[in-house]
């Protein structure tokens, strides 16, 4: 874009100056175009493949989504500073206790943009027992194109998204309704 006054003269004698200028412009348009496409995709929707992620939990356990094929996974992105997250924290734990002994259902919590100490204190205060971990580098948040917290994704046994929710759950029954159809 930095065409100085003298391109007027120089570009006539040297066509490559012009070519570089146009190529740079085209490149720029491509970049902005890609950025635009990314921005346009919006949030993940039901039917999309769930992006693979790995998570190291606060207990040091490694979780990889790919390794969880064959299980129903509920992925909940939350933060200790997030007020609405508190509305659903108890419900999530209650629902988890309904399924945890089955073995084919896993709840995974991801703390977004949160401090370990605060996150751990939060988990403790809600007696949360399902695995939770910090979102290192806010990667999972970006992968799932999240736009806030809390957001919840339910992934079926084949790794496909079957349910998304961009606000807190209002009841245990609501969580059950999202998971039960997958257990048949």
């Amino acid at each position: 874009m930095n065409q100085s006054p003298a391109t007027t003269n120089v570009s006539q004698s040297r066509p490559w100056g012009k070519i570089i200028a146009w190529a740079a412009l085209l490149l720029l348009l491509t970049i902005v175009g890609i950025g635009l496409i990314k921005a346009q995709r919006g949030q993940l929707a039901v039917g999309d493949m769930a992006p693979n992620f790995t998570l190291t939990t606060f207990d040091g356990q490694e979780i990889s989504l790919e390794a969880l094929r064959g299980k129903v996974v509920l992925l909940n992105i939350w933060a200790s500073w997030c007020v609405p997250c508190k509305e659903e924290a108890d419900d999530l734990e209650t629902a988890w206790r309904l399924y945890r002994d089955r073995g084919d259902v896993l709840f995974v919590g991801v703390a977004y943009s949160d401090m370990d100490t605060k996150a751990k204190a939060y988990l403790k205060s809600y007696n949360t027992t399902y695995p939770n971990g910090p979102d290192m580098g806010t990667r999972i948040y970006q992968l799932y194109r999240a736009t806030g917290v809390p957001e919840t994704y339910v992934i079926d046994r084949t790794g496909k998204l079957v349910y998304v929710k961009f606000s807190p759950f209002q009841s245990v029954a609501e969580i059950q309704a999202a998971i039960e159809p997958l257990l048949k």
Partner: peptide
């Protein structure tokens, strides 16, 4: 780099003028 290119181009333009 772009600013230096600008300086150079401007300088060349002065010369040619």
């Amino acid at each position: 780099v772009l600013i230096l290119v600008g300086v150079y181009v401007l300088y060349r333009a002065f010369q040619s003028w």
